[in-house]
Write a protein that binds this DNA or RNA. Sequence first.
DNA 1: CCGCGGACGTGCGCTGCCGCACAGCCAGTC
DNA 2: GACTGGCTGTGCGGCAGCGCACGTCCGCGG
Lengths: 248, 248
Amino acid sequence: MRSKTLRSKAAFEAGANRLVTALPQRSRKRFLARCERVELRFAAVLGVEGEPMQHVYFPIDSVISLVTTLADGARLEVGIIGNEGMLGMSILLGVNVAPQRAIVQGGGSALRMNAAVFRRYCERDSDLRKVMNRYVHVLMEQLAQTAACTLYHRVESRLARWLLMTRQRVGNDRFNLTHEFLAYMLGVRRAGVTHAAGSLQGQGLIDYRRGAITVLDPRGLQRASCACYVRGNAIYARTLRLARTARP
Amino acid sequence: MRSKTLRSKAAFEAGANRLVTALPQRSRKRFLARCERVELRFAAVLGVEGEPMQHVYFPIDSVISLVTTLADGARLEVGIIGNEGMLGMSILLGVNVAPQRAIVQGGGSALRMNAAVFRRYCERDSDLRKVMNRYVHVLMEQLAQTAACTLYHRVESRLARWLLMTRQRVGNDRFNLTHEFLAYMLGVRRAGVTHAAGSLQGQGLIDYRRGAITVLDPRGLQRASCACYVRGNAIYARTLRLARTARP
DNA sequence: CCGCGGACGTGCGCTGCCGCACAGCCAGTC
DNA sequence: GACTGGCTGTGCGGCAGCGCACGTCCGCGG
């Protein structure tokens, strides 16, 4: 067994938030000094559309969903945030009001920083701005893609994509989700999810029982999903690689 | 008749790009000195997804559509840019690759600035950044809303909304568009547009003939549209009002 | 061990939109 | 004044997903 210190270090390197990791060492140190580590509980609401934000979050092994709300009350998940991203980019953009509802979709830990502090950091530290700005760009591409994907792609493909994205972010083949919740995220009926999930299960790609889903065959699932999954990853990689101003 | 000078001034105040107008006077002057005025022709392609951008554009009375492309080639308009916005925010975010296809949907004039110059301005001028950042936020909300609107709302409502947005940006009740083009924008069949447009015409809200559409009853059209139109305007007003650091 | 509530399965009629196809119709052109 | 190409109208079969509703199954607490 490794010592506790070694484990923590490994955890930092493997599991830390990738945006934070992308900061040059000096920026990162100062930055981390003003963060606190918090545990996010499943279904917690970290932001409500139209209300001011108190904190920004950098997930480590938690997953946050961005859910937009229309004037008629209809809702749809439009973005997923894991350790590759952050919640609260609006602060960076000079707006302290949350644009979407942010709910914890997968419990776990995250780094949290006071919104006002984060804003000041952004104004002063151009390295930080560089990284965060690029992430904003990625998020915009994700939003645009979601719009088209939602229109053109069938529920089964979208579900497959969604499961892959979640799997990637929780870093585990198994996670807890009900069909009801998935229906909410995808903007379809619960019965529609049951049908699509049944099909994926029939193909031996996933397995689920009472709120717990296991991805059995990620490759196969990728084939069943729309290409939007691969594309999203490609955009992220392409856009943020260049922002890596220092090695971790 | 007013003198030419007076007309130019009126044109500047009424028709100039609102983002530019929102800049403090000093910033604005320097800014305008590095812009050139260009005429945008209908259907011109100002940016191709994945390719570097040479310029950023601030429409005056032209209208630009942002069209996203999926891996399977499917396309959907996800944003509209008129004199309230700009094309090329990615430059501001440190990415010089266009995220979406940008096509001129309504010919007219625009201010154009070299992308590299714009980038430098953004780095130096924090007032400029402030305004542009807020616009990025607005655009993100527009993208998120489009995703949900596209999923939940019927073609007729979406068409109505689209016509209202375009009308607002061209500043005229009459503009040139074929059903084919509208179908492309909305991601539906041409026949679907014909049907929806026929319905709107039957209600006396619009009139169209061979590629020319006239909005007869904006209020009525607003009632026929989904609430996303009003909402989008509200978000813009709320977000950018605060950014107005100086009076024109 | 039984009851209960939450999660999943299924069925039915309906509607909005699709894909395809063809028919009118208008505006320029030769 | 006929021709042609672009724009619009319409029809038909098909299907994905909706709304609604009821049935089943599992797991937990009493």
